[in-house]
């Protein structure tokens, strides 16, 4: 564990608490893509199935359980508790276009051709693009509540912080994980436009609005 990865994990935790806070205080999931949240459930279940056959540390297991449980809880909040506040007509990104290529990538790029490893690789690729329905929705509405942008910033910062962690691990342990690194760079890249607007507008006290 190094400081970059730890801060990345904290940022990931923070993003989930921000999202829960947004849904519960506004009693609404307006502006949040259900499709993106559903993809995260798939990502976490596919990746963290190893909970049952590989023990790394208490930290590792606790975080995995938290990410599985919280992502399922968010789906419950969106689909049942605050269902009327979700507008499916603006959440229209076709997730098949993400699932199918990720499955193909996982079948080609994996560290061992077995069920668990292909599933792991699938979850890594899917995580990289799972934010697209959310960003697509943001693009369509052209604006977002401040709290939603803080959620996205924390979520984007999480994988961005993993990049210095991988550089650090390369120099200290002499190891690279090319699948995670490639997907992580793609994932961070998808946030660049968002980060630009976040830093130049939201953090300067303005509303998040995309140019028309």
């Amino acid at each position: 564990m190094n400081i970059f990865r730890f801060l990345g994990d904290l940022s990931h935790l923070a993003s989930i608490f921000i999202l829960l806070h947004k849904i519960q205080t506004t009693r609404s999931c307006r502006g949040i893509s259900f499709r993106t949240q559903a993809l995260y459930v798939v990502v976490f279940i596919a990746r963290y199935l190893d909970l049952f056959f590989r023990y790394v540390s208490l930290y590792n297991s606790a975080m995995k359980l938290f990410f599985i449980a919280s992502s399922c809880y968010i789906l419950y909040l969106m689909k049942i508790r605050y269902r009327p506040t979700h507008d499916p007509s603006i959440d229209t990104f076709r997730v098949e276009y993400l699932l199918a290529p990720c499955l193909i990538l996982a079948l080609i790029f994996n560290y061992k051709f077995n069920f668990a490893e292909v599933l792991w690789s699938f979850s890594i690729w899917l995580e990289a693009v799972a934010i697209l329905p959310q960003l697509f929705m943001l693009q369509r509405t052209g604006e977002a509540e401040n709290i939603t942008t803080h959620y996205l910033a924390a979520l984007g910062a999480y994988r961005a912080l993993y990049i210095p962690n991988w550089i650090y691990r390369y120099f200290t342990e002499g190891l690279v994980d090319p699948i995670a690194v490639t997907a992580g760079i793609v994932q961070t890249g998808l946030y660049l436009d968002f980060f630009y607007v976040y830093f130049t507008k939201v953090l300067q006290g303005q509303k998040f609005e995309l140019p028309a």
Partner: peptide
């Protein structure tokens, strides 16, 4: 075989 994968990452 040596796995390149970081099994300890989330």
């Amino acid at each position: 075989s040596v796995s390149l994968k970081f099994h300890d990452e989330l």
